[in-house]
Design a binder for these strands. Structure first.
Length: 431
RNA sequence: GUGGCUAUGGUGUAAUGGCAGCACAAGAGCUUGUGGAGCUCUUUGUACGGGUUCGAGUCCCGUUAGUCACCCCA
């Protein structure tokens, strides 16, 4: 294959026609569930001030430090970024448009592309789609549980069972520092047993040591202090309530003391949903399908009022991959009911008008006007599996009629043009 | 950012260092107004750039892309 001059840059991909039905199914499932729960859709721009993310997600996180696409605008004054996630822009919009003076909470959802400059691999792309939902201005634990329940419902709409909800609480600005200290102390005393990566993490982001996959580290971590033992009164109660709601909703979850998330703005509840490994099926280990948590301080960090909130986001590519793995059958395009074939210049002209009449009558028509030979048009009709073919040639065009052929029986009859629609409708009913 | 594996028509695949084949798909035709089968013909290829060699799809180096793992994350 001689290399085409242009191809897509690393890590970004075309969503080809054959994959569209999967993406549409995800978007549709998200939309229907979220609409039911009174979430309003919002689209924020793909470009934002880069500082929005460095303030929100955290200057020292990998997302901001290494993975964010940033650039200077032509004027050179602004530094913009391709959005790496959806929450900070929504909080920005909340503050900017004065949503705090509307009845709280504000429930919003989105679906769109996000960008992170990473090395691509299974379920990981530089441009990827996420859907997400945010409940802003609600501190009650019900909101946390409801988001998990909604996420669960969306995934079930997509026939994705066998899901694991992992949940943890990482505390707030009162109790997290205490825990952090205890963890650092513990890790330092076990420093020699940790892998080299973790020794580095110990300095920059000690919480991240918790989800290291290295076996040695895991052994050490078995004895590590756990966030939930350090929660202050308020966080403890909140977490307990979230779990009680989940019990009530009958959503299976596992407490994962090692679950910490990579974004600095999280407080209290954090969760992830991943697919349970199915026996006898080689599944892709592509990480969490979806994640989320509470971010009570984000609005303030962005210079706004205090807006206790929580949110979740789902990775569409990962969900689509799982749907395919589990054999989900997306809806295909509705099949055309009739095929319109034409022969000769006069009929060709007439056929466009007939198409339009059929469209107005809500009859699905297929055609292959670019082919002039009746033979190849019939071939197309046959390949498409369409039972009724309308044939219009010179003779029919002059007479104002159309030949109607049943592809199964081979019977055909002439119908007057003004009666086509009526005739088609009665024939379709017979089937 | 680090490491492993891979790269042959549109797709899927062959070719001990010696003529790049096959299948499917696509297009044209086999009574110039009638499809599904069959037949005939046609189009399309060694990712890119170097090197070794009489000779490279095949061996070596680089690049690019894909893929997987690490890191991190959806």
């Amino acid at each position: 294959m001689s290399k085409p001059k242009f191809q897509n840059p690393t890590g970004v991909h075309d969503i080809l026609p054959e994959d569209q039905p999967y993406y549409e199914a995800v978007a549709e499932a998200a939309k229907s569930v979220l609409n039911f729960y009174q979430f309003k859709k919002i689209d924020t721009p793909i470009l934002e001030d880069a500082e929005l993310f460095s303030r929100g997600i955290g200057q020292l996180t990998d997302i901001v430090e290494k993975e964010m696409y940033t650039f200077k605008t032509k004027g050179g004054k602004d530094i913009l970024a391709l959005r790496p996630e959806g929450t900070a822009p929504i909080v920005r919009a909340y503050i900017q448009h004065g949503f705090q003076s509307m009845p709280q909470p504000i429930k919003l959802w989105y679906f769109g592309p996000f960008f992170r400059h990473e090395r691509p691999q299974a379920g990981r792309f530089r441009q990827f789609y996420q859907f997400g939902a945010e409940i802003l201005g609600e501190k009650d634990a019900l909101a946390d549980a409801q988001l998990i329940s909604i996420l669960y419902a969306i995934l079930q709409e997509l026939k994705l069972g066998d899901l694991i909800v992992k949940i943890n609480s990482i505390g707030d600005e009162n109790c997290r520092p205490v825990y952090r200290k205890a963890l650092i102390k513990f890790l330092k005393s076990n420093k020699k047993s940790l892998c080299s990566d973790c020794q580095k993490r110990l300095k920059g982001n000690p919480l991240r040591v918790l989800d290291c996959k290295n076996e040695k580290c895991r052994e050490v971590l078995a004895g590590a202090p756990q966030t939930i033992d350090f929660l202050c009164e308020e966080c403890h109660t909140h977490f307990k309530e979230v779990l009680e709601y989940l019990d009530e909703l009958k959503i299976p979850y596992i407490l994962d003391a090692n679950l910490v998330r990579g974004l600095d703005y999280y407080t209290k509840t954090v969760f992830e949903v991943e697919s349970a490994p199915v026996p006898n099926v080689e599944g892709l280990s592509q990480g969490a399908l979806s994640g989320g948590g509470r971010y009570d301080n984000l609005a303030k960090m962005l210079g706004g009022p205090e807006v206790p909130s929580c949110g979740m986001a789902g990775g569409v590519e990962r969900i689509v991959a799982l749907m395919k793995e589990r054999g989900y059958k997306p809806k295909s395009l509705p099949k055309s009911e009739v095929f319109l074939a034409q022969i000769g210049p006069l009929a060709k002209k007439r056929s466009l008008a007939i198409m339009e009449d059929l469209r107005k009558a809500n009859i699905k028509v297929a055609e292959s006007f670019s082919r002039d030979s009746l033979k190849s048009q019939m071939g197309m009709a046959s390949k498409m599996g369409i039972e009724s073919v309308l044939i219009i040639g010179q003779k029919e065009a002059l007479q104002g009629t159309v030949m109607m052929r049943n592809m199964e029986t081979g019977k055909q009859s002439e119908v007057k043009q003004e009666e086509i629609i009526k005739e088609i409708k009665t024939r379709l009913k017979e089937d």
